[in-house]
Design a protein around this nucleic acid. Structure first.
Ligand SMILES: [Mn+2]
Ligand SMILES: [Mn+2]
Ligand SMILES: [Mn+2]
Ligand SMILES: [Mn+2]
Lengths: 218, 218
DNA sequence: ACTAATATTTAGATTAGTCTAAATTTATAT
DNA sequence: ATATAAATTTAGACTAATCTAAATATTAGT
């Protein structure tokens, strides 16, 4: 049996280990879960014992296949619930995360597969993140950050990296959302800000914004 | 802050105290929650401390208004989720209880009120139990058990008392469900069995069944 | 009214998850 | 190479929820 807390650790480690990084270190996990490093050490020993991950003292952890499988299933549930909340219950994309954080732990194969069908097997969640299917496969779109874009090219906005309420509300306020068509007008080398144009509006966004907005060439 | 376990105790006490019974006793709670009497005593002290109920040593407990409010809210969530599972996700009425047992603890005002609206404000759950509205009011239908029925009267089946999978599957197997029109043909004094007729079918049901099937005079 | 059976509470132990503070290891910087 | 800083682990303590076994209170039967 796996506990809710264990699930949260495994998911956090999965997300932290996603981009490169051979090993995920203790402090990173502690920060992600808003807990203390000493608590992480304890839990990581237990998860290692249960073979959800491999743990090298003072080095960090790597999920096993068994651990990855658990993680992907939680991500699947999290993102499907997010779609449900936005599509069916009038939640905005900045409201869904907190509730999905709890719904993701409800354990019922039938529930999640029926929900998937009810939502007509969505491939992406409200933040543009891919939703694994019931076998754990997800179609990864090849997206780039706005900061990686090329001048005078035209892109569609397909996702966000930062899913915090602050950032999402900033985008809402500026009428940028998934599907928005963006032309890159200028990239300022001095502060890495980017001048963009969309729906006849021109605006300059900071490097911070540019790094957190994902695009796909149209 | 109230824990998931506390919520389960409060809900169990609410259901046990519903019919008459001034006080709910320790063993009844222990049985309902499949735990030991000593655990109940501990928890009941804590809930009393937090003013969710009044506890008289060796006598039992009664929920306070504060406790009742919590209980009704959990019941509301439980029954709304049950409706969702049946209406939208193809669950049968004997499959919903277990999952709803977990979903009922998800805490989000918006979630539950939007779900309520999405389901078009249902008044009854799949077992015929009334669903409290957001203010905690529920319209109680005046129903009687089949065992209380009168000969040659005609009734509509409006609910079940026992919501166990066993009983529900028995009803399914005999094509009895909510909405079924039933005529009472004979009541056998010897064993309290009842002979009924519905959809041109005649059958005899045991006292056990007769006590767990709720009817309303048509 | 007294005894026996039943119900309930207490005492003490256990497990999961967490924390602070101290000890240890690894990384960095002269 | 050595000292210092940063990261990590250990030790010991705490809370929530549970259990078993023993003690105590209530109820029922004669
Ligand atoms: Mn979570
Ligand atoms: Mn998301
Ligand atoms: Mn529950
Ligand atoms: Mn029900």
């Amino acid at each position: 049996m796996i506990t809710l807390t264990e699930e949260n650790y495994i998911k956090a480690i999965y997300h932290l280990g996603k981009y490169g990084k051979a090993m995920v270190n203790t402090n990173a996990i502690a920060e992600a879960l808003e807990t203390k490093a000493s608590s992480v050490t304890d839990m990581v020993k237990k998860l290692s014992e249960k073979e959800y991950l491999n743990y090298k003292k003072y080095q960090g952890v790597v999920l096993t296949e068994k651990g990855k499988h658990i993680a992907v299933n939680i991500v699947r549930k999290h993102r499907l619930w997010e779609v449900f909340l936005v599509e069916k219950l009038n939640f905005t994309w900045d409201e869904v995360h907190e509730v999905a954080e709890h719904l993701e732990h409800i354990r019922s194969e039938k529930l999640i597969n029926e929900l998937d069908a009810f939502l007509e097997f969505p491939s992406y969640d409200p933040h543009g993140d891919p939703i694994p299917d019931k076998n754990g496969n997800f179609k990864n779109i090849d997206k780039i950050a706005l900061s990686q874009s090329e001048i005078s090219h035209i892109y569609t906005c397909v996702g966000v990296k930062d899913t915090s309420s602050h950032f999402l509300k900033y985008l809402d306020g500026n009428k940028i959302g998934l599907g928005t068509i963006i032309e890159v007008l200028h990239k300022e080398p001095f502060d890495n800000s980017v001048k963009i144009k969309f729906n006849a509006t021109e605006m300059v966004v900071s490097q911070n914004v540019a790094k957190n907005l994902f695009l796909k060439e149209v």
